[in-house]
């Protein structure tokens, strides 16, 4: 039961591994970025789970509430999400430029396009 009770951590690990796998295994530059996003999202879930206090509520002072969740990880992850969005945007714009220059976003096809040094 305890293992099941920590199900959100299992989800974190599943997301992390599948995202990581996509980054490594896929040859399409856009799909790699998707994998990277999944990978990052798993970390977001991890931080959010970490801040949750059992039975706690949102950290807004209200009558009759004794336990609050820890707000700090949630705040942190807001920052991390912003960073993630910026990374994705930059990555996609690089892919656009690569597509303009090479006419493809497939890794294998890119490899042959430049003369070998």
């Amino acid at each position: 039961m305890e293992a099941f009770g920590l199900y959100n951590y299992w989800i974190v690990i599943f997301l992390m591994m599948s995202g990581f796998y996509v980054v490594i295994a896929r040859g399409n530059l856009v799909k790699k970025l998707v994998g990277l996003n999944i990978f990052q999202a798993s970390v977001f879930v991890f931080y959010i789970s970490m801040g949750k206090v059992a039975g706690g509520t949102a950290p807004i002072i209200a009558e009759g509430v004794e336990t609050y969740s820890n707000p700090l990880p949630h705040v942190l992850i807001l920052t991390a999400i912003v960073v993630g969005v910026a990374t994705t945007a930059l990555g996609l714009s690089l892919v656009v430029r690569i597509n303009e220059e090479y006419g493809t976003v497939e890794e294998e096809e890119l490899a042959g396009k430049d003369p070998a040094e």
Binding site: V23, L36, L90, R97, E101, D114
Partner: peptide, 17 residues
């Protein structure tokens, strides 16, 4: 060089990881 783009992309992936 246009290879700079792909180099930046690779760095972006690995750097982010």
């Amino acid at each position: 060089d246009r290879r700079a783009l792909y180099a930046a992309y690779q760095y972006l992936i690995l750097g982010t990881i």
